[in-house]
Lab assay of single mutants.
Amino acid sequence: LRLEVKLGQGCFGEVWMGTWNGTTRVAIKTLKPGTMSPEAFLQEAQVMKKLRHEKLVQLYAVVSEEPIYIVTEYMSKGSLLDFLKGETGKYLRLPQLVDMAAQIASGMAYVERMNYVHRDLRAANILVGENLVCKVADFGLARLIEDNEYTARQGAKFPIKWTAPEAALYGRFTIKSDVWSFGILLTELTTKGRVPYPGMVNREVLDQVERGYRMPCPPECPESLHDLMCQCWRKEPEERPTFEYLQAFL
């Protein structure tokens, strides 16, 4: 395994491009020591290896001592969030954005069929390849993070704006909380990567959403798509659509 080009840095580690087995181009995620327990990670990795779908980033291998390494397929255009905010983002029109959403829903419909939960679905965790191919990455890892700023769910590192209220408040993460996050991801797509709930801080978002506030229809977004977002944001988790439905609708 060779680490060649550093692609990015996040709160919990770095991402590199490299070569595996001398020939395969891969992405390598390294986790800061202390982010998660190697034992817990190894268990999760076994499950992650079983998830194989064309719209999920394929896991190739893991190094399960500290520092933990995760070796996955390489996606040339990086994260969907950076892609939307970058040069190419300007030229993306609604049909392409909807197609990308459908690809993500397709990957998540598979996660749904496998009775698995992602827990951290957002544009930053979707990767883009050639020809606007989108794949879901980092599934299941969020559960293992041991950082206090994260586990408190009120901490600075927790993605509260993407998280369903029952998950943020009571830790009830299910495929239905993933559906909520998918609704937020749809706003990221239609606004080219704007942060959700602009002008609001995490605490406010939690309070307002509890009181029934939902983001309005983004500019140039059809009402039918906003309606779909609002279905994803129904207060009762069981009233939210399935990913199978979302995939078919898109």
Rank of each mutant, 00 (worst) to 15 (best):
L1T: 13
R2A: 09
V5M: 15
G10R: 01
C11T: 03
G13R: 03
M17K: 10
G18Y: 12
T19C: 12
T19P: 11
N21W: 15
G22P: 15
T23E: 12
R25I: 12
I28T: 13
K32D: 01
K32C: 04
T35V: 04
P38R: 12
E39C: 09
Q43Y: 15
Q46I: 05
V47P: 00
V47Y: 04
M48Y: 03
K49I: 04
L51R: 00
L51T: 04
L56P: 04
L56N: 08
L56Q: 03
L56D: 02
V57T: 09
Q58V: 10
Q58L: 12
L59P: 04
Y60W: 10
Y60I: 15
A61P: 02
S64I: 04
E65C: 15
E65Y: 14
E66D: 14
P67T: 03
I70P: 01
I70F: 03
T72I: 15
S76L: 15
S76G: 10
S79V: 03
S79L: 01
D82H: 10
D82C: 09
F83A: 10
G86I: 09
G86P: 10
L92H: 09
R93L: 07
D99A: 15
M100P: 03
A101K: 02
A101I: 11
I104K: 00
I104E: 00
S106C: 14
Y110A: 07
V111M: 15
V111R: 00
Y116C: 13
H118L: 01
R119T: 02
D120A: 00
I126M: 08
L132C: 07
C134K: 01
V136P: 02
D138L: 00
F139M: 04
R143P: 00
L144M: 12
L144K: 15
E146L: 08
D147T: 08
E149Y: 13
E149S: 07
Y150M: 01
T151N: 09
R153S: 14
G155S: 05
A156P: 01
F158Q: 02
I160P: 03
K161Q: 00
T163Q: 01
A164T: 03
A164P: 15
Y170E: 07
R172V: 09
I175E: 15
D178L: 02
S181G: 05
S181A: 05
F182G: 01
L185N: 04
L185M: 09
T190L: 06
T191G: 11
P196Q: 01
G199Y: 14
M200V: 05
M200G: 04
V201M: 09
N202F: 04
N202W: 01
R203H: 13
R203S: 09
R203L: 14
L206W: 07
Q208S: 10
Q208L: 15
R211T: 08
G212N: 08
Y213Q: 05
R214L: 11
R214M: 09
P216H: 08
C217T: 13
P219S: 13
P222F: 07
P222W: 06
L225I: 06
M229V: 09
C230Y: 15
C232I: 08
W233L: 05
W233C: 08
P237L: 12
E238P: 13
E239H: 15
E239V: 12
R240P: 01
T242D: 15
F243C: 10
F243G: 04
E244P: 15
Y245D: 07
Q247V: 11
